[in-house]
Write a protein that binds this DNA or RNA. Structure first.
Length: 596
RNA sequence: GGGCUCGUGGUGCAGCCUGGUUAGCACACUGGACUGUCAAUCCAGAGGUCGCGGGUUCAAGUCCCGUCGAGCCCGCCA
């Protein structure tokens, strides 16, 4: 007999009754009746109830087993009595009558209950991640992650993509985030950078003629974490295609994304391809964000006309100064108590806004604090623009366009959540397209790239030479699901002449461009195919499929928000001789005074 | 760098608003009882610098100030 097991803990069935079996696993739970002991043995595959009674020579040893001890149990598979069958377990019709047991590894008392679904503090979970990952619901999410990645890989290969690996130790890249740097021992004072994305490599692979590239690519960015953004590192489905328009890229990705979501969430409603395309400008106007959650039925409108020249001087004079007024119609909200509107107003103030105006509609009239300024013609106009009817409420935000969009967008999210308006069990996708090529830095007034500097400007060289840069769009697009940005992508700029010009507008001299991106620029001088791609975030896809809002839930060994690995104690100090070898001298900030 | 929330035996929570008996409950742990449980049950026990420092007070887990740590958010992340 195998020293550890003849079956897994999820395998034995009624048809195995009478056979001899050996199982190995963790002691999941014990039910000790004194002269009869039930013991649930758990492994990756499932749970099997093992029984030991007082007559067994193993009885004392079995009674003494602590939870999570690893043990091998041998015995006979026996049928459970009709009233003892556990229908919740696949192995619930049988149990293992234990003849002998062998302890493989003893467990100390646990800092974290493995057989509990209770919430534990995240630092405890991360410090004892190996225990946390034993817990069924956490374990399952990591298995899901593996299956999702396998499915994506299968679908990409079937679609004619070729998988590549690209360097991890590379040079600093043009993405906007801070790089992780790795000092060179051989080249004093020089550093490798970990790739923020394999951006230039995948473009070089297109120049190399591979036509369709993909990679489940690790990406490293030294930026602060968020619930949906793991600090340090994450994975992208990075892909790139030659001789394509942006429509071709969308058409290539949509069946992969839709297929994966349909495969793992057959219960959910999923946007069928082709996904809606929403221009950046429309998204900002209608949803107040470039990553709209389309499960939310609320839509923002422009009601500046309703208040222009009205008696409500707060809005009217703001409009004179160039402000706009955004309206948010909320069906049925007129029935909410006054406290509801007061709370929202306070919320808006907490967001740094002067407040959130509103009217409610009933019996053909407007009500509320500012209703007296909305006369009959203005009310008619409001109804016309927003579609509001009796029983609805309309909220107002007056500010400069960008600020008004932002707050109206936040209010849309807030109201959608508070009033439980979001479509349930649904994945709603869209493409946000036609991003601006450039934007003006509010502080410096300088014109800079608003997204990827390697994107092709719409209109090409012609547009760069003759158009106001701030009006130029790029062939740049994001895919968004349920308010989560899954990726951005672009048709790339493969023409050195257009690239010099594009960088020139953002203030880079020809020499700067050559110094920083010489490798790729040089490649483009020897015959580069037009190409484009995208790179959806794997962690975010799995997070959405798992129904989680925290990305660390689908990463086996995540760092905390301070970019520390509590299990492996990273980052850590290194011995002085290693620093000398790397030609590094530390220049540390002064120690803060110790107070406790 | 900033804002908000949280910090109480190994673990999860209550107690704090409104200061006052031995800091309570559950899980885990130790011992005992129990032959059909499946979150087994019952009895007993051990286990606490109430994050840390300072202040107010006759008295602080509770109120105030500071500080450290964690989470969420802003900045940042094309």
């Amino acid at each position: 007999m195998h020293p550890y097991r003849t079956h897994t803990c999820g395998e034995l069935r009624a048809t195995d009754v009478g056979t001899t079996a050996r199982l190995s696993g963790w002691v999941h739970r014990k039910r000790d009746h004194g002269h009869l002991l039930f013991l649930d043995l758990r492994d990756h595959y499932g749970l099997t109830q093992c029984v030991v009674d007082a007559s067994s020579p193993s009885f004392a040893a079995a009674s003494a087993l602590r939870l999570e001890t690893v043990v091998t149990m041998s015995g006979t598979v026996v049928a459970r009595g009709a009233d003892a069958v556990n229908p919740r377990l696949p192995t619930g019709e049988i149990e293992l009558a234990v003849d002998s047991l062998e302890v493989q590894s003893v467990a100390e008392p646990l800092p974290l209950q493995v057989n509990s679904e209770a919430d534990f503090p995240e630092d405890t979970r991360l410090r004892y991640r190996f225990l946390d990952l034993r817990r069924e619901h956490v374990h399952r999410k990591l298995v899901l992650r593996s299956q999702v990645i396998a499915s994506i890989r299968r679908r990409m290969i079937a679609a004619g993509f070729t998988e590549f690996q690209t360097p991890i130790l590379t040079s600093s890249s043009p993405e906007g985030a801070r790089d992780y740097l790795v000092p060179s021992r051989v080249h004093p004072g020089k550093f490798y950078a970990l790739p923020q994305a394999p951006q230039q490599f995948k473009q070089l692979l297109m120049v190399a003629g591979f036509d369709r590239y993909f990679q489940i690519a690790p990406c490293f960015r030294d930026e602060d974490g968020r619930a949906d953004r793991s600090p340090g590192e994450f994975y992208q489905l990075d892909f790139e295609m030659s001789f394509v328009t942006q429509e071709d890229v969308w058409a290539a990705l949509e069946p992969v994304i839709h297929g994966v979501f349909a495969e793992f969430r057959p219960d959910a409603a999923i946007t069928p391809p082709p996904f809606p395309r929403i221009t950046y400008d429309d998204a900002m106007a209608k949803y107040g964000t470039d990553k709209p959650d389309l499960r939310n039925p609320l839509v923002i409108t422009d009601v500046t006309d309703v208040f222009r020249g009205s008696g409500f001087t707060v809005f009217a004079s703001a409009i004179e100064q160039g402000a706009i007024v955004r309206g948010l119609r909320v069906p049925g909200a007129a029935a909410q108590p006054r406290s509801f509107f007061d709370k929202l107003n306070q919320w808006a103030r907490d967001q740094g806004a002067p407040g959130l105006g509103y009217v409610t509609l009933a019996e053909g009239a407007a009500r509320g604090p500012i209703a007296k300024f909305v006369d009959a013609p203005r009310l008619a106009r409001l109804r016309e623009i927003t579609g509001a009817a009796d029983g609805d409420a309309v909220f107002f935000v007056a500010d400069k366009r960008a600020a008004a969009d932002k707050l109206a967008g936040k209010a849309r999210v807030k109201l959608g959540e508070e009033l439980d308006l979001l479509e349930k069990n649904a994945y709603r996708f869209c493409w946000i397209v036609d991003f601006p090529m450039y934007e003006r830095d509010e502080e410096t007034g300088k014109i800079d790239f608003s997204h990827n500097p390697f994107s092709m400007p719409q209109g090409g060289l012609e547009a760069l030479e003759h158009q106001d840069p701030l009006t130029i769009k790029a062939y740049q697009y994001d895919i968004v699901c349920n308010g989560v940005e899954l990726s951005s992508g672009a048709i790339r700029n493969h023409r050195p002449d257009i690239m010099y010009k594009a960088f020139g507008i953002a203030g880079y001299r020809r020499e700067d461009v050559e110094a920083r991106f010489g490798g790729m620029l040089n490649a483009f001088k020897y015959g580069a195919p037009p190409h484009g791609g995208s790179a959806p975030g794997i962690d975010r896809i799995v997070m959405l499929l798992a129904g989680e809002t925290n990305i660390r839930e689908v990463i086996a060994f995540p760092m905390n928000q301070q970019a520390q690995d509590l299990l492996m104690q990273a980052p850590g100090e290194v011995p002085p001789e290693r620093l000398r070898e790397l030609h590094i001298k530390l220049d540390l900030p002064p120690e803060p005074p110790k107070t406790g």
